[in-house]
């Protein structure tokens, strides 16, 4: 029963959706503070390259140690890149779009991630460590829900906890309230005694760390190797997801799994022997994003679900 087409599709939807959730929630928190981080794709590539490099260089000791180190390095590199962005757009009040694009080019497929791939000979080494599936409570063989819910790797469970945590944080805690105030009305938040700059720094750096982890997921779970431009635009889809989810964490998950299914549709159907041009399937996630973004700004925007009012604007006392 667990090799049904639907189960296979959903399972690969979760596989490809997980990095979108992790990066998407990170971007959501940054945008809620008023910072538009357009360098997610670049940070993900850096996370993928450095995490893979770390996992390859640790050859002794248990596998989980190498994997933990790799994920932490991915997160740390994400923070470092995001730090450049925050300094530029918060402290120097530079344009957020241009700064984000600059970091994207800096890290991107012709930038530092490519450089590290060459220097570390990453493309020619076969991966040694893959994130193991955790068979929770021994329920992994249950019909349908077994492979989908009880037999996933640690970052899938992390993405679920992260979503619930982010939702709780935004709506039920004082800090979350302050965060929303900073993104909507920074001057009012400032007058209230909230440190606008600190909030923006913290949440953008957190978003960077999560984007780094999302990138690490590509080289530790989805394909356990390094090819240049391994994320192939997933960072941009994560940014689009935040808009499509109207800046609400739970909707990010739904969207991410939908995109995950669409992304993996081609691989799944090809494995089953369907003969259709590869370009058609590869283009589906981008087409879907294009239409969804247009739809979200047109038809759906009449519901009162708008972007944070101060998104993209520098803060001046």
């Amino acid at each position: 029963m667990n090799d049904l087409l639907v189960v296979t599709l959903l399972a690969s939807g979760i596989l490809y959706g997980t990095p979108l959730i992790i990066a998407g929630i990170g971007e959501l928190l940054a945008e809620r503070s008023g910072v538009l981080n357009l360098s997610v794709e670049g940070i993900m590539l850096m996370g993928a390259a450095t995490a893979f490099w770390t996992s390859q260089s640790i050859t002794e000791g248990p596998s989980w140690l190498a994997l933990t180190a790799a994920i932490l390095v991915g997160a740390f590199v994400g923070i470092l890149v995001a730090l450049i962005l925050t300094f530029s757009v918060i402290t120097m009040r530079a344009n957020q779009v241009v700064s984000g694009l600059a970091l994207l080019i800096f890290c991107g497929p012709l930038g530092l991630s490519n450089y590290l791939g060459t220097v570390g000979n990453l493309a020619s080494s076969t991966g040694q460590h893959r994130l193991p599936k955790l068979d929770l409570f021994g329920l992994g063989d249950l019909a349908v829900v077994g492979p989908l819910i009880f037999n996933q790797d640690v970052l899938v469970y992390f993405s679920w906890i992260l979503t619930i945590g982010a939702g709780f944080y935004l709506t039920k805690t004082r800090a979350g309230l302050h965060l929303r105030a900073v993104g909507e009305e920074p001057n009012a938040a400032d007058a209230m005694g909230v440190n606008v700059v600190a909030y923006r720094y913290f949440h953008t750096l957190l978003g960077g760390a999560l984007a780094g982890v999302a990138g690490a997921y590509y080289s530790l779970s989805i394909s356990v190797n390094w090819v240049n431009n391994i994320t192939a635009g997933a960072g941009w889809i994560a940014i689009a997801l935040v808009i499509l989810a109207f800046w609400r964490p739970l909707f990010v998950v739904i969207g991410a799994y939908l995109f995950g299914v669409v992304t993996s549709l081609g691989f799944t159907l090809q494995a089953l022997g369907f003969k259709l041009p590869a370009e058609l399937f590869s283009s589906l996630p981008y087409l879907l994003t294009l239409f969804a973004v247009i739809l979200a700004s047109g038809r759906l925007s009449k519901f009162n679900l708008k972007a944070p009012a101060a998104l993209g604007l520098p803060f001046r006392r």
Partner: peptide, 16 residues
């Protein structure tokens, strides 16, 4: 990759 590194830094510095 040096190419993107230098271009990205130029763009970032001009913006900042």
């Amino acid at each position: 990759g040096l190419l993107g590194v230098i271009q990205g830094l130029i763009l970032l510095f001009v913006a900042a």
